[in-house]
Nucleic acid binder design. Sequence first.
DNA 1: TTTAGGG
DNA 2: CCCTAAA
Length: 588
Amino acid sequence: MRRLDYGFTGYQVPVVPRASRSSRGRGQIRKKCEDNQIRGFGILSSVAGNLSQGSESLVPTNAACVQDLHHIVYANSNRERDEGRSLKQDSCQRGTCDEKFFAFLPGLQGHHKSYKLNEFCHGQNNLILEVGSASGAYDQSEMIFFAEKLATVNSRNNCVSSSNSVIGDSPCFGEFFEDKVGGVLEGKLGDKSYTSISEKDGIIPITGSSEDLIELDREPHALVGSESDVKLSLLDCINHVPCPKHYDNVKVITRDDDENSVRCSQHSTISKSYTPTAGIRERTKKLSASRNWREAQKLKGGQMKPMYCNGTNRHMDERSQNIYPFKKRKFFCQNPPCTSDGGDNRSIVKLSIKSFKVPELFIEIPATATVGSLKRTVMEAVTAILGDGLHVGILLQGKKVKDDNKTLLQTGISQDRKRHSLGFILEPRHAQITPPACTEDQSWLPGCTPQDLSRHSAPLTLQPETQAMVAVPSIGMEALAVVPFCRKSNPEFVRRRIRRPFSASEVEALVQAVEKLGTGRWRDVKLCAFDSEKHRTYVDLKDKWKTLVHTARISPQQRRGEPVPQELLDRVLAAHAYWSAASDKATG
DNA sequence: TTTAGGG
DNA sequence: CCCTAAA
């Protein structure tokens, strides 16, 4: 009997003949595993996976994860507070920003709230996100979400990304923000003001889901009322200076949406395995002409689906939960060498960039939208802005330096100048080049009046930003990636999913599932062994199996990445051989 | 949508 | 991981 040749023991191999696809149901019957046996297998493998994953976590508990993460979160209705001002540079002042971004969540009726990200300053030891509220109040969970996500975003931008970063809501996660030097929580609520300084451990527990409010000893209500500003400062969280060695004691919290766990990774550890050049090479290689064709097809079909439509599309929903690095990375490491233009090459200009000015970010979202969707919207917007859709502008004494070919000497940037005269702006890369190309919704085109806009979204407040809203550069729309019908207009911003290597437990689960189900039923494999892992599609599983087979066939010396136990690789080969033979037999 | 296979 | 022809 073939089963004897199979080599697997301990369970029965269900011989499920591979029916033609047309005969295999797609409905609820196949929603889960076909029989109890397989279902039991799935559960077992799940449990096994969780157990082993837990044991291999870098940091097993949430609390331990944040030992070195310094956060200060404070809300303040007074814009002029010294804490905020002192951290700002001249280059980070309000009102000098040309570009503005909008995030717009379509499809829902009702009141809207406009959120504006006025400034986003990176400092060597601080990171400030200042949010000006046009109307509604913020709750603390939103603030924390900002803080948390920005930490992740910035970690990614510093090329020390963790593969576990996930966008979206985790159904349940508890996190702690700890400020070793003394956490500060202060705010004002009308006449009531309070300041909460954690003197000892400075731990602010944030429990429950991301929707929940922070639990505070005092003033457990919203920190800010309407017309208040919220400032979030992540001290020591991420250092924007691109020198990873500073991060030795900084940990990045990443959350696995599936396991409801918080994982921490040492930056230094991450950066070890991160090879930016390889990533660039890979992505550059893939910029095939087919993309243009594909985009044309999508344009033609007009079949872009809203990303936040109650998850009616499982695939879109799954993919939207991942943080996508931008598909096309253009990290040119081709800084031109100092040219001998008569200047003194030995003259070095040392710059300490403490903050970047960023374009304002506007978010319009119906009041009926969920908090979760707001979070996703903002997160996507921030991610996009901080991702790759920007280039750096330089302000010298308030004037934009436009000629990139001038030397610093020629431009007047030199050491003896006051540093305050030099400013850096993050601005849309193609803002001046690409005209808005969103043809489906004319309201986003330049020249549209606010009335046109309100026809769609009826924002509660437009404020002075209204004029900017109609002049929003297309890059802003696409960078936000929250307006699907606009994203298609620029293939440049199709983002690649973040790489998430399979853990040993996942490999184990995959092997078990394939042993059970075979190599041609990836949807079933997914449902049985990875149903809870939204980021693993059946295509992913198929691909992983392919690489596993390849790995098993090559010599151990040739293998890369996290070593897969030989025992598992043996099972991979055995299962692959078995099911290949079974397939051949069935075929002919 | 799912499978299968190349990139 | 991405892309996509084919079923």
